[in-house]
Write a protein that binds this DNA or RNA. Structure first.
Lengths: 332, 332
DNA sequence: GCCGGATGTGGATACGTTTTCATGAATCTC
DNA sequence: GAGATTCATGAAAACGTATCCACATCCGGC
């Protein structure tokens, strides 16, 4: 496809033009090893004149690894993961590393397939939001792949560095806030895999001496349809609830939609708190009270972690923040 | 980092174990060339037994190109580009191609830098939402890079395949709809670079014999701050407008926010139409009437185009759709 | 029975880089 | 001043694959 004779200029061309060996050119350009000032200058001048750019292909093969980092998220359409990806890209850019991205759709099988592709490509550093129980990571981890988990911890992989939000505190803050307003029948809308938040939810209720009604803990898959079905089912079937915690912006969206559809008024009939401070939370009617999660930071920190490959495994827990708007009121 | 002795199994290992030459293994596995049924079977069996995965590194170097496609978008945080990326990823996945992503921040310089990185990595197929006037693409195009532009056409690069929305019709539909409601002082909030939409806006007004007030065409950069400043300035300074078209979801968000801040009621005081049918448009108060753009399709089609490298350059124009909700009313 | 073509096969080469190693020169040490 | 140490340098060897080419074999046709 490339015009004939338009061959890329290689290190060999530079070496010949500068009348030195290829090894010298490589050393000068990569900054490793020693070279006399005179030689260095000559090589740099020639390289600039020929507009030489070292080919990552050759380098990668030689080093037996591709530079750059792999990024696996469930759904790039979800603003939360969009921000997370943005954080990763931001850090990767300042480190000069390219990023290869893939979406898992929260499907462990698809995720396993993507891991295979990444390994095939020679990627050896990956940031992933693991789906399922994360068991498909075991062989990859054993083979020496540098992995950092984001958003969700993986049980039994505590030796793998992770960046997560402080779910426990976040959920407790939400529950305490609602309980403080007098609510006792509080429901939780959770995504499959948010076991941590469910556990924290139970604990927070128990701490307030509110009996846990298991029927008020509803699970959904990470799709709009599933989320809507769960929210609608809950609001329809249990009209006695007075408050609702949505474990993510997709679930919150579904809750708002379902409430509107069923003519359940927020916050008069039911108070609503959502995880994720997405832009539309403020535009919504009423503006949504949220538990904000630092998605972008999460991505940035994960990228930092995966790039410092020498360090010890460390789990970073980022704080959440309650942002009060207008979707919660006193118990009716 | 990889455990010692844990060397990857290479094509050579397979060849030895199957008692054939490496060339034969390569032929069998890549499906090219001829091989006897017996040999083929043996090779496949051995490859499976050894869990052999061909290294993309070696292949890429040999082929002098990296498989996979590069994707350059202004801001992955913007739902529109999130969807576009999702479309690209979807098509790329079914073609088995990895995707390397980068965000330009709408900065031509940053974009040029990213192009350089992509070329260095050996990528030879790129989908890009070009920023600025797209002049930094000239050398890349000349060097034989397979480029497809998405969302925005580049003037003077009509020979480059592109996938865009039918801006002209979209804008006209919006203006006609508003004019039909009796509005004559219609403002346009546009991002820098949306010259096409601005032109279409002027034409649509002219077609309705509405004089064009240049002051009602306001430009903003692709950031929340800039969008808000533009929207607030417009609403504050020109309280005589009765309708507003926002050229993107960021601008629409800013318009809603600014209107709320300035106590301008929608649609009573001013009618609002936004480009992009994002999920929150329905959750907003009032629900926003929008010109929907098929962002995901756009990404998918762009990926298709960039993968069929034999074809002629072709510009695909995708239709828009007016979705009427509740943010427009008759002229007050 | 000989020849032309098709078919299967493996050795060898090239892709562009980094890194090791040997060599020679220069500088230092006592 | 001789030996030891540092330094600059380039030739050569990988890295793992795809492909060119030569060779051998087989087959059908005359």
């Amino acid at each position: 496809m490339r015009p004939i004779g338009q061959r890329r200029t290689t290190i060999k061309d530079v070496a010949e033009a500068a009348e030195v060996g290829v090894a010298t050119v490589s050393r000068v350009l990569s900054g490793t090893g020693s070279a006399s000032a005179e030689t260095r200058e000559k090589v740099l001048a020639v390289a600039a004149r020929l507009d030489y750019r070292p080919s990552a292909l050759g380098r990668n093969l030689r080093r037996r690894r591709t530079g750059g980092i792999g990024l696996l998220v469930p759904d790039i359409t979800d603003v939360f993961y969009g921000r997370l990806a943005d954080g990763v890209l931001s850090c990767a850019r300042s480190a000069g590393e390219p990023v290869m991205i893939g979406t898992t759709g929260d499907d462990p099988e698809r995720e396993a397939h993507l891991i295979g592709t990444l390994i095939e490509e020679g990627l050896d550093r990956v940031i992933a939001v693991p789906s399922g129980d994360g068991e498909m990571w075991v062989p990859a981890l054993r083979s020496g792949l540098g992995v950092v988990f984001a958003e969700r911890p993986v049980r039994g992989a505590e030796h793998v560095p992770s960046v997560v939000t402080d779910d426990r505190t976040g959920v407790r803050t939400a529950v305490e806030y609602l309980a403080g307003l007098g609510h006792r029948r509080i429901a939780l809308l959770a995504r499959h895999g948010q076991a941590q938040r469910v556990r924290a939810f139970r604990e927070a209720l128990a701490a307030r001496a509110v009996p846990v009604d298991e029927e008020l803990i509803v699970h959904a898959h990470a799709t709009r349809d599933s989320a809507y079905a769960a929210a609608a089912g809950l609001l329809q079937h249990r009209s006695d609830i007075t408050a609702l915690v949505a474990g993510g912006n997709l679930l919150g969206e579904a809750a708002v939609l379902a409430a509107r559809e069923l003519d359940v008024r927020v916050p008069r009939d039911v108070s609503l708190i959502m995880f994720d401070d997405v832009p539309w939370a403020e535009l919504c009617h009423p503006p949504l009270t949220v538990i904000s999660q630092p998605a972008q930071d999460m991505g940035y920190r994960a990228a930092e972690l995966v790039l410092r490959e020498g360090r010890r495994a460390r789990t970073v827990t980022l704080p959440t923040e309650l942002i009060v708007r207008a979707s919660c009121g006193p118990r009716r």
